[in-house]
Amino acid sequence: MSIQYIFEILGTIVFAISGALAAGEKSEEQDWFGVTFIGFITAIGGGSLRDMLLGSYPLVWINDVNFMYAIFVGILIMRFFYSSLDRYRRELSLFDTMGIALFTVLGTEKALEFGVHPVIAAIMGMFSAVMGGVIRDTLTNTTPVIFRKEVYATACLAGATLFLILYRFEVDRTLNFIISGLLIIFIRVLAVYFKWSIPKFR
């Protein structure tokens, strides 16, 4: 089992948790179907859009039922540990942070495999990381994080850039995945803790 596959399964789980938490937080009357649907869309949204743009078919979750199981696991974890998970989500945006870290490096590497320019690969990594959250926030009638002043997509670009640098110097693939993902988590956690933000456009 490759590190890429492990990261993609883990990313699917944490994004499913993130989506389900957002749905549960938005409405206490949300039923199982609504929570599962938003968790599902959050988990597969960014990766599906990435694969469609790259022309990678069939989509990962269609070709491998394990991704469906991963989503259900995420929903169940949210259901049984909601109080604890929701507290950490509010304090550190924990599951968003883990999700974008995992999907940024995955998206960047997959784009490279399709022969795109490294700059496009970095943008594709960021795109696949943030779009699941954008869809989640849109469905729950919340302003997407990417449209706020928070350091979010910028952290993804930093991690993707580091991934490309290490890739260029032929650093071990597994080590590259871990280091680049940890950089995104590090930047994002510091940004939340110290309330860093991107300057206003005007």
Rank of each mutant, 00 (worst) to 15 (best):
F33E: 02
M52D: 02
I123V: 15
S93F: 04
P118L: 01
M124I: 15
F103K: 10
S27K: 07
W61P: 01
I44Y: 05
D51F: 06
I38R: 02
G115P: 14
I123E: 05
T36V: 07
F67C: 05
V35K: 10
M52F: 10
V119W: 02
D64Y: 03
L76G: 01
M52I: 15
E25S: 14
G46H: 02
R79K: 12
A16G: 09
G55P: 09
P118S: 04
R79V: 09
G107P: 10
L92R: 00
V119D: 10
G115H: 12
G24Y: 06
V60I: 13
E109L: 12
I62G: 00
L21P: 06
F95R: 10
W61M: 08
G45L: 06
I62H: 11
A20R: 03
I38W: 03
L53R: 03
K110H: 13
L59W: 08
M68Q: 02
L102Y: 09
R50E: 03
I100R: 06
M124F: 15
S48C: 03
V116M: 12
S56G: 01
G45F: 04
G34K: 05
Y88L: 15
I38D: 07
G107K: 11
S93P: 00
Y82S: 07
I71G: 10
I38H: 06
F95L: 14
L53I: 12
S84I: 10
I123P: 02
F81N: 15
R50K: 12
L102G: 06
N63H: 03
G74S: 08
A70N: 02
F37H: 00
I123W: 12
A20W: 07
Q30G: 02
P118Q: 00
L49C: 05
G39D: 09
L94T: 11
V65P: 08
Y57V: 10
F80C: 07
L54P: 11
A22D: 04
S84D: 10
Q30M: 14
A23R: 10
F67K: 05
V65Y: 13
E91W: 05
V73R: 05
M98E: 00
L59A: 10
G45H: 09
E28S: 12
L94M: 09
N66P: 00
R89Y: 10
F40N: 04
